[in-house]
Write a protein that binds this DNA or RNA. Sequence first.
DNA 1: CTGTTAGCGCCTTCAT
DNA 2: ATGAAGGCGCTAACAG
Lengths: 347, 347
Amino acid sequence: VPPRPDGKRVSLRALAEATSLHPSTVSRILNGVDVRSSAATRARVVRTAQELGYQPDVAARSLRTGRSFAVGFVIPDLTDTLFARLHQGAERAAHAEGYHTLLCTVELDAGLCERDIAFLTARGVDGILLATARLDEPLLERLREAGTPCLLINRHTLGGEPFVAADDEAGARAATEHLLELGHRRIGFVGGTPGVSTAEGRLAGYRAAIEAAGLGVDEALVRGESFGVAPARAAAEKLLALDEIPTAIVVVDDMMALAVHGVLREHGLRVPEDVSVTGFNDLPIAELVDPPLTTVTTQPELMGELATRILLDHVVRGAELRTELLPSSLIVRGSTAPPPLSRAGRG
Amino acid sequence: VPPRPDGKRVSLRALAEATSLHPSTVSRILNGVDVRSSAATRARVVRTAQELGYQPDVAARSLRTGRSFAVGFVIPDLTDTLFARLHQGAERAAHAEGYHTLLCTVELDAGLCERDIAFLTARGVDGILLATARLDEPLLERLREAGTPCLLINRHTLGGEPFVAADDEAGARAATEHLLELGHRRIGFVGGTPGVSTAEGRLAGYRAAIEAAGLGVDEALVRGESFGVAPARAAAEKLLALDEIPTAIVVVDDMMALAVHGVLREHGLRVPEDVSVTGFNDLPIAELVDPPLTTVTTQPELMGELATRILLDHVVRGAELRTELLPSSLIVRGSTAPPPLSRAGRG
DNA sequence: CTGTTAGCGCCTTCAT
DNA sequence: ATGAAGGCGCTAACAG
């Protein structure tokens, strides 16, 4: 006896009896596969299926087809709004194909680990979206062996695996150029975890802009050990301990930018009058704080949606996985202004 | 032929052959059910299971047992950190029992709707955690009929359904009392969506504190049509349009409190010098902004964890669902201070 | 155009 | 203490 207390989920067999057809015929019609039935019976079946509220049993279907109709979504921390937004897009695209996402929460910056692979493969996900990849991700090989397709999202590797991510370099370059145009010449950088493409890409964009302006990169101005509020505060303190402090700081992330702002405040410095600050990701708070934060936006929902579509195109229809680089664009708000010297010069 | 390209997941049968036992024996041993085998063979089976990396096929197991080993988690929007934190706790507790959570994202304040029920029951979840209930939630009856247990989390109904939630009333009362102690007598309230327990409970706490202080509630000071940043701004504008504006505002949510702060700023008012502001939920940004936000904390991870444990105790072991009210506590930060008049009086 | 058959991997009753 | 048998609900080959 099946333990389910209510004995009345309509099965395919019940539907077949109701329509005086064979289960397999009904199955074919409802799945739109091998449709040789007349339009009349087809309509009849579909209608009674709706009337009886037929819902195919996913477990049975999975067992039979070998597909679970789930994609794993490996993410560090939904508490970070960026990842929540990525997931929102992914969920929407998954539902559109009758799929659902299976969340696998991992430690930030730890990459993919055995436990996660076990969790996801045990549930037989048909594919994986990995948002936490490091530049070197040896365990991807394990997934390949297991035959589970994997698409990187948000962060990419150096191994040439397909990914969907924002153009981090262009975003950081735009932010830095914006500061250069305002007249800043001494621009600090508060970065993220080394070995992670978002951190490295944004740093590269910062460097590229500085060098394109004919200025050398002063390595004393490049700080940041890892993502996170505490590291950001530490990095800011180091920048403020310099003999000559920067007049602007490019920060790798919005929350971290707010943390940097906090440290500046503690030192009696005002944003943007004394020091300009830029962030990354355009979190909802960015426009609520004072001053509203100049930042780079990256359309995370779109990214999640696109990545999921690409992955499911592969899983469901056998298309090739492919890489997409999404544009990032600068949003100028109140946290950036000309440097104090040029203001003094003007005044 | 099963479509899975790699033909080599170890099945129970493979394990049986490896141990020269019958599949059913192996099953019994691994599930710890009806254990009549000798300790020796038991150990041998467990060991080889680990060696071969045996993972029971969830689909097959679900089909057979009628359990899906998944609980649905109905949530409005992971972008709101509160819900992300609830989920984090829930996920942890679910994993501890071999369960996973199946996220079902719904519109904020819409309660439970047909589509969500269909989504979750189609996947045969063994239970549902509903974080978006309204005080009147007629569709819960539908779930009862379907035989899917449901535990409310975060918000409760008036129908007496079991829930796990924070003491919203006590939290708002504490915030209001704190303002009263600072000397405020004209305290505004920016509330959330009517018909939702968190909004109503916090409003009730505000009222209770005002009345306990021997003051009458001035209904002109009670504003707010629904949760959200835009409604919060509108409510703040209304409070500032009064002949005599409040010297403090209790806001039903942190993000909304920041929005209110923004409106105050636009009107040339400083927080807390001119107007004090309190929030609710203690989001991570609360301590990063300037001034850091005085708010009420509610341990959302614990709430998610506890609710999941209670639900699974019911699902797995048949325990009764029960209600738990978690304490909320006030965190005093920089956004609250004595009202301007008393400061003038002191000065 | 429709029905028959078989089996996905597992658990559970019943028989040894 | 173990084996045998059956079936959960569905789909995909192969007849008719």
